[in-house]
Design a protein around this nucleic acid. Structure first.
Lengths: 320, 320
DNA sequence: AAGGTTTGTGCAACCGGTTGCCATGACCGG
DNA sequence: CCGGTCATGGCAACCGGTTGCACAAACCTT
């Protein structure tokens, strides 16, 4: 069994409160006593029980981070950035994956409540209402979703979509397929909003879709059949699925159809053709989310980060 | 503030112990009382504080999962499998990433201690001695590492390496480069062990390397210069880096050099050429690790899972 | 109807810490 | 030499639950 504060107290003949102070308020204890306590603690391998401590202090120095799908390469850079930032603030980050299931998401949030000081909610699939209710029990920072009065880190998807559409327009594309993501995805809505407002385009919507390679693969045939010469995909995974699906039908990218994704993930950079994509500021977002959570006295601060179009090999001039 | 057990007790005029039993031992409380308590609890939005509960019961129903690098596509399938399996057992999994840094790894384990019932340690970078010490404070299951007396899930790397080398031998390769991973990686050692024992091969070792695309990219030139006609890489990421580095020097894969990776990750399947690789049973490993942890009355049970060679496009006949 | 079981609930100790308050004694200036 | 300060460390309540034990009431037995 691990040594407790009592064991240490007994071992060096002081009261537990003295041991406690040795760790959490060293200046209140006599240097001589302090070193005796430290020696005993070291000897017994004592570590304060963080859960027990949190019970009285109300602070765990942990934060939760919930993502919809950890296998989506978009998230790991964000997660790592958040972990690194948190570490610098003496915090630890616990990550969990919802499998794109709102019920699991709720369950996870409830589990995190009281075990962390706050939760970073990345691309949540829960309804706004539910998120607001759960926010009564644990502070949130939401990433990729706008919820009134709640601190949020947003990526400027609209701007990115605009860049992408302009790029396609310049290449002579007019009929463009829009392959969206899951229902309730804020990103999807943003994309569609911008596209709908852009004049002079002939848009075809496809959705909802799984935000994965499989999702792209599944709609490839429909997209090919709709007569579009270019596709704007929900994310790079979907785009990769599309490219693969199109290749299977002997439709060349970008020769016959141009494809643009979102996120700028590793497999997109390694793919042939290398994917043209709208790069998301995932690293900055992870950092920012942590900071927002820690100063969340600032209440509903919203940060919007810019995106950038990265033109690579999957887009080309429209064939008429 | 969130409602506590006292609030509920007061609200329906019973003792806290009755409320407690309503949740943790319902059969001990009168159905009439029970429903009153449940009504009050629901009304106040009461949820038992899991951390507080763990203090007395000693069980959190959480488990920790520590990986060296969450951005490595090898891990997500394992993580998801573990989470799914745990969910079926009423457990939750908290994931953390060590950034390949043993100090961070130790820190994380200490943080998890007492906040989880056990830790799944995937491809740890800590020394055996340190792991054994830490195991006194929290139960472990180790994945991809053999430590005496400690439950472990191993993947049969040796067998996979053997298959890979045989495959290369059949294709006529004799001088083969072995690009290993980080120091302290059990997988690396296994690979080297098998390679060294296989007769009739002319091996060149390169290592240690970062287990990432960058690591592969960095040694590509050396590998090309050493005169090998084939490479066995630590994992698919390294293999992809190698392919990319070789391509930059106008060395074709598999025409001039054959490349085999380990893991069978998504980017490898999407790459051109599609990567020949030794598939690791990551999903089965995640599941198994969870089960091992939960029945870890079984002490040091060791499970070894088989690997399989998947021949795709990055290997070909040796040019002499 | 007496005695033995159940059943249901309260009491209080406990888990491993933290912290406000108080008692003690050393030290200080006048 | 005395009252006042201050550093030090003990006491005990508390955080939010759980659980062994005791006890009263209700429920069988015969």
């Amino acid at each position: 069994m691990a040594a407790t504060i009592k064991d240490v107290a007994r071992a060096c003949g002081v009261h537990v409160s003295t041991v406690s102070r040795t760790f959490s308020a060293p200046h209140l204890v006599n240097p001589a006593t302090r070193s005796r306590v430290l020696a005993a603690a070291d000897d017994l391998g004592y570590r304060p029980n963080r859960a027990a401590r949190a019970l009285t202090t109300g602070r765990t120095f942990n934060m939760g981070l919930i993502v919809a799908d950890i296998a989506n390469p978009f998230f790991p850079p964000l997660i790592k950035a958040a972990q690194a930032q948190a570490r610098g603030r003496d915090y630890h980050v616990f990550v969990a994956d919802t499998d794109e299931d709102p019920r699991v998401e709720e369950e996870l949030i409830r589990t995190f409540t009281k075990q962390v000081d706050g939760v970073l909610l990345c691309s949540p699939r829960l309804s706004n209402k539910m998120i607001e209710r759960l926010a009564e029990d644990v502070p949130f920072v939401v990433v990729n979703r706008r919820i009134k009065g709640m601190p949020a880190v947003l990526m400027n998807v609209a701007q990115g979509a605009k860049l992408a559409l302009e790029h396609l327009a310049e290449l002579g594309h007019r009929r463009i397929a829009l392959v969206s993501g899951p229902i309730g995805s804020w990103t999807s809505n943003e994309m569609q909003g911008v596209a709908a407002e852009t004049p002079g385009l002939d848009l075809v919507f496809f959705g909802p879709n799984q935000p994965t390679e499989g999702g792209g693969l599944a709609v490839a045939a429909d997209v090919a059949a709709c007569g579009a010469t270019a596709v704007l995909a929900y994310n790079d995974l979907v785009a990769l699925g599309l490219v693969e699906g199109l290749a299977a039908m002997d439709i060349g990218v970008p020769d016959q159809i141009s494809v643009i994704g979102f996120d700028d993930i590793l497999p997109g950079r390694l793919n042939r053709p290398k994917l043209t994509t709208v790069a998301m500021p995932a690293v900055a977002a992870g950092r920012m989310a942590v900071d927002l959570l820690l100063q969340s006295g600032g209440e509903g601060a919203t940060v919007t980060l810019d995106t950038a179009l990265i033109v690579r090999e999957s887009t080309g001039r429209a064939q008429r």
